[in-house]
Amino acid sequence: MLSNSHDFIRPADEAERARLESLVRGDYDRCHPGETFDDMKRRLSFSEEDQGLYRDWMALAAARAETIRTSGPKSIAA
Rank of each mutant, 00 (worst) to 15 (best):
59 A>H: 02
50 D>R: 03
5 S>N: 09
58 M>Q: 02
31 C>T: 06
62 A>D: 03
45 S>V: 02
13 D>L: 10
19 R>Q: 13
13 D>N: 11
75 S>D: 14
62 A>T: 01
31 C>W: 06
67 T>E: 15
8 F>G: 10
4 N>D: 13
49 E>D: 15
27 D>Q: 04
35 E>W: 09
18 A>H: 13
34 G>V: 08
65 A>C: 12
31 C>Q: 07
74 K>A: 08
8 F>E: 12
2 L>A: 10
48 E>M: 06
69 R>F: 08
50 D>A: 08
63 A>Y: 05
41 K>C: 06
17 R>D: 09
28 Y>V: 06
1 M>F: 12
4 N>Q: 10
78 A>E: 10
49 E>K: 02
23 L>V: 07
35 E>S: 11
33 P>N: 02
77 A>T: 06
66 E>M: 02
67 T>H: 14
25 R>L: 06
10 R>G: 12
15 A>H: 08
50 D>I: 12
4 N>C: 14
19 R>K: 04
77 A>S: 14
15 A>E: 12
69 R>M: 07
71 S>C: 05
60 L>H: 09
42 R>D: 00
44 L>C: 00
8 F>H: 15
28 Y>M: 07
57 W>K: 01
45 S>K: 05
78 A>F: 14
68 I>P: 03
61 A>W: 01
43 R>Q: 09
20 L>I: 10
66 E>N: 03
64 R>N: 06
57 W>Y: 10
34 G>Q: 10
49 E>A: 09
49 E>T: 04
60 L>Y: 15
14 E>G: 12
22 S>T: 04
63 A>T: 01
45 S>H: 11
74 K>S: 08
74 K>D: 03
26 G>N: 12
33 P>L: 11
10 R>M: 13
51 Q>M: 08
37 F>I: 01
62 A>G: 04
43 R>H: 00
20 L>T: 02
35 E>M: 13
33 P>V: 14
37 F>R: 08
38 D>N: 14
67 T>V: 07
44 L>Y: 12
58 M>H: 05
59 A>F: 02
65 A>N: 02
15 A>G: 13
19 R>V: 06
3 S>L: 15
19 R>W: 14
1 M>W: 15
48 E>N: 01
53 L>D: 08
5 S>K: 15
10 R>S: 11
49 E>N: 01
54 Y>F: 13
4 N>R: 13
25 R>G: 00
28 Y>S: 03
30 R>H: 14
51 Q>I: 14
46 F>A: 05
34 G>A: 09
18 A>E: 14
6 H>C: 06
48 E>Q: 09
49 E>F: 08
38 D>R: 09
65 A>M: 00
54 Y>L: 06
73 P>R: 15
76 I>Q: 09
24 V>T: 04
12 A>Q: 11
22 S>V: 02
46 F>R: 11
71 S>L: 03
16 E>H: 07
